[in-house]
Design a binder for these strands. Structure first.
Lengths: 148, 148
DNA sequence: TATTGTTATACTCTATAACTATA
DNA sequence: TATAGTTATAGAGTATAACAATA
């Protein structure tokens, strides 16, 4: 079932092996994200754009490019398609007329909520863990993510 | 620094929140994988193809398509480019002449090793954890990945 | 001069559908 | 008939370079 027959980096440090394991788990579980994407008619970059665009927090084009880790020129097309569907709006920033702020529309906020619920609700690879392990895992991951 | 200001699903089950956290961590850390990819002149799908193609384990085209979670027609092009670089070979399978087995060349094995080292050696988000947490995390992730 | 966002270009990835050669 | 892999096609993602507007 697993894509790899043995831990890829069992001889590395615990942190390095743990990281290799999460990369593998996330990669192997992409099927669920693709299913959600297909259901909502969103491409993977569009999904991440929606996840990053928080209601009430205008985001500049270049800022979104950094979050998506792609060149600014790509964001033009990605946002074009989201805007064509009425999910986001481009607004000129008042402090600097070169900057364009992205703001979720009402439809955009709705779809973002549906997206987050769909991603949070489905089965995930950690469901096999017992309650203690799951809670311990969550606590350690919160630390790693900076949510002490 | 973090892309999200708060745990995305703090009200969900521990397993669901933990899963959301790893997805976020892996997404935020893609920069390192992209840097490795660029260094070795490999695209992301090519990276995953190399990670999946184990030396001594011939893999059919369709099998690789399943592992990459994409349509078989894509694998043709991805493998074309790997083969043009002399990293893999297509060999007719003896038991079924429709099937083509992918086998890493010597250069392919070398590059795969360099790739795995580069990915395992660099800094990762779990470096901030103390030794106990890192070891606990690794052990729980091994369970989740099926390496009890 | 430097920066923000866009456009132009070329390449890769992606799914769908039609095709071939096997089975 | 069904399956493995390819080809054809169209749409989307990606980086680079050049550009306009603004700072």
């Amino acid at each position: 079932m697993a894509a790899f027959p043995a831990p890829p980096t069992a001889s590395a440090s615990p942190a390095a092996e743990a990281w290799a394991l999460v990369e593998q788990l996330v990669h192997d579980a992409r099927g669920r994200m693709f299913a959600v994407a297909r259901d909502l008619e969103l491409s993977p970059p569009q999904i991440w754009a929606l996840r990053h665009l928080e209601p009430g927090a205008p985001t500049a084009m270049g800022e979104l490019a950094s979050l998506l880790r792609c060149d600014s020129s790509n964001v033009t097309g990605i946002v074009d398609r989201l805007e064509a569907r009425g999910l986001v709006e481009r607004r000129p920033a008042s402090h600097d007329r070169r900057v364009k702020h992205l703001v979720l529309t009402e439809d955009g906020v709705d779809l973002r909520t549906r997206l987050r619920c769909a991603l949070a609700e489905g089965p995930n690879p950690f469901d096999v863990l017992d309650a203690d392990d799951a809670a311990t895992l969550r606590d350690i991951l919160r630390k790693a993510a900076g949510f002490a």
